[in-house]
């Protein structure tokens, strides 16, 4: 088990009320999985991914990474864990606009403190996502699909234990979205890279090997597909 939520509850104070985003869920992700959190908007997908990705801390319950409760780690230590063990892909790509594709990928390596063979790793990652000829371009010189490929390269380059992607295809047209999913699936099958992503798109769910269904902050289904 790479990461696991145990009885995790997350609430947000909203003035007088508290919004319950996750109402005590238990779920874990194993090495090599290609899993999607599926559910309508507001069901708690992003919240769950943030907690598994150690971007946020639960209101109650435990978040385990490599079997260890991350609550014991301080912010900087948690940052280092994220930097080395977890890769992120965002819905709106979120590349650093002033850095080129190669520099964006390099940044992830530097922040993880991985300096050995940096240049080669950056190149390889960009070749892997089919952007060999776009390494020197800035994000605004790339299409949405290309930007998301750079984001994949950025998440991938440090060889994390898991890559977490919140609705990675939501900002892409269906053709580009499918291409991105194919790429992710191919990396999963070929290199056994673990992916955990979210979607509310049935087309995307169909590509996953495991679908965890969320509704109103609770898990309402967990099925493995062929």
């Amino acid at each position: 088990m790479i990461c696991q939520l145990v009885g995790v509850k997350k609430t947000y104070p909203m003035g007088e009320l508290t919004v319950v985003a996750l109402n005590g869920i238990d779920v874990g992700v194993d090495e090599g999985e290609f899993t999607v959190f599926a559910g309508p908007s507001g069901s708690g997908k992003t919240t769950a991914l943030n907690l598994i990705g150690c971007l946020d801390r639960p209101t109650s319950g435990q978040v385990l990474l490599d079997g260890r409760d991350v609550a014991t780690l301080g912010d900087d230590a948690l940052g280092q864990v994220r930097a080395r063990r977890i890769g992120f892909i965002f819905q709106s790509f979120n590349l650093i606009p002033v850095l080129t594709a190669a520099e964006n990928v390099e940044l992830a390596l530097r922040l993880a403190g991985l300096d050995k063979g940096r240049k080669e790793k950056v190149e390889q990652a960009l070749v892997d996502v089919g952007l060999k000829d776009f390494m020197g371009r800035r994000p605004n010189q790339l299409s949405g699909g290309q930007q998301q490929r750079v984001a994949i390269a950025r998440a991938l380059v440090k060889k994390p234990a898991i890559i977490i992607a919140d609705e990675p295809t939501a900002n892409l047209d269906s053709q580009n979205g499918e291409a991105i999913l194919d790429l992710m699936r191919q990396m999963n099958e070929r290199d056994r890279i673990t992916f955990l992503f979210s979607t509310h798109d049935p087309m995307v769910m169909a590509r996953a090997r495991r679908v965890v269904r969320l509704k109103d902050g609770a898990i309402v289904g967990d099925e493995r597909l062929a």
């Binding site: 971007l55 912010d75 940052g79 992120f88 979120n94 650093i96 940044l107 993880a112």
Partner: peptide, 14 residues
């Protein structure tokens, strides 16, 4: 805010 958050997610220290 967004891109600083991204860098923080990737391990940038405060």
């Amino acid at each position: 805010t967004g891109e600083i958050g991204v860098m923080r997610a990737f391990g940038l220290r405060r």
